Simulated assay, not measured.
Amino acid sequence: MKFPPLSCGILLRRYKRFLADVQLPNGEQITLHCPNTGAMTGCANPGDRVWFSTSDNPKRKYAHTWELTETHTGDFICVNTQRANQLVAEALENKWINELANYQHIFPEQKYGEENSRIDFLLKKDGMPDCYIEVKSTTLLTDNGIGMFPDAKTERGQKHLRELTQIAQQGQQAVIFFAILHTGINTFEVARQIDPKYAQLFEQAGDNNVKMLCYKAQIIIEQQRPIALELRKALLS
């Protein structure tokens, strides 16, 4: 997945969830739109370099969108949660996810379930059970080097696990797909200490044959600028 052209600055602060102030190399200060409603633990430290895209849409109040954080340790974090689904869509279309490569048809954003949910991707192929995929953007890196999800209590995520468990019990394929968008993450665990209920439902889902996949995004740098992400490396499968 290629980024639009990116510019960089130094993060001053993130506030009101959707806004961030950045200082540009020329000293100018601008406000970015932050497309991430999560806690963003470790992803929004003042002083880190941030990379942002710019829209030419005159109707936008904030023309710039925060895409990546570059930490003091040299790791890149994709903070734009919309990119997770775009990465998975690209990987599905190109058959980069071995466990899902046999499906022929990809349908994004399909309604399903008893709790009125919307699945990120529904895969179909004649003669095979339908496959329901829920994508989770994962950016939390703990002090001991482990990537975790969620980074805050998530009732929405709990609902998704209940829905996927029911899908699996009905004989369909159900997948929760953790897209690792932090280059420093090399192992993964569910964050039991942050959301014990989510961890409990995660275990129940696994006991009911919900498949857990975890793939790490690779960042592509050209002329000292990030230009693209690819989702090809499996951490867990």
Results as ranks from 00 to 15, higher is better:
Thr54Pro: 11
Leu87Ser: 01
Asn36Glu: 13
Gln166Ser: 14
Ile167Arg: 11
Ile185His: 00
Glu163Arg: 09
Leu213Trp: 11
Pro58Arg: 14
Phe202Met: 09
Phe107Met: 10
Thr187Glu: 11
Arg83Phe: 01
Trp66Ile: 06
Thr187His: 04
Pro5Asp: 14
Asn85Val: 06
Lys216Met: 05
Met1Trp: 12
Glu93Lys: 15
Asn80Thr: 04
Gln82Val: 04
Asn98Trp: 03
Ile219Tyr: 05
Thr81Ile: 12
Thr154Arg: 09
Gln29Leu: 11
Ile10Pro: 01
Ala174Val: 06
Tyr215Gly: 06
Gln86Glu: 12
Gln110Phe: 04
Arg192Tyr: 09
Ile194Asp: 01
Leu32Gly: 06
Asn144Val: 07
Tyr215His: 09
Arg162Pro: 04
Ala44His: 12
Leu19His: 14
Thr41His: 03
Gln104Ala: 14
Arg14Met: 00
Leu161Pro: 07
Leu141Ile: 02
Lys59His: 13
Ile167Pro: 02
Gly171Gln: 08
Thr37Asp: 14
Leu235Glu: 04
Asp56Gly: 13
Pro35His: 08
Ile220Pro: 00
Thr31Asn: 08
Leu122Val: 06
Gly145Glu: 04
Thr142Asp: 05
Gln86Gly: 01
Phe18Asn: 11
Asn26Cys: 14
Ala44Asn: 13
Glu134Ile: 03
Glu203His: 11
Lys61His: 15
Trp66Gln: 11
Arg225Cys: 13
Ala20Phe: 02
Arg14Pro: 01
His160Lys: 13
Leu87Pro: 01
Thr65Cys: 14
Glu67Met: 13
Pro226Lys: 08
Pro226Thr: 09
His182Asp: 03
His72Glu: 12
Glu114Tyr: 11
Asn116Trp: 02
Ile180Arg: 00
Ile97Val: 10
Gln224Ile: 01
Glu114Pro: 07
Met40His: 12
Gln223Met: 04
Trp66Cys: 05
Glu230Arg: 09
Ala179Leu: 00
Glu155Lys: 15
Arg162Ser: 10
His33Pro: 08
Val210Thr: 04
Phe177Ser: 01
Gln169Trp: 00
Gly42Leu: 12
His105Thr: 11
Lys59Leu: 15
Phe178Tyr: 07
Leu236Lys: 14
Tyr15Arg: 07
Lys124Ala: 10
Gly206Thr: 10
Phe107Val: 09
Gly157Ala: 12
Leu161Ser: 03
Thr142Cys: 07
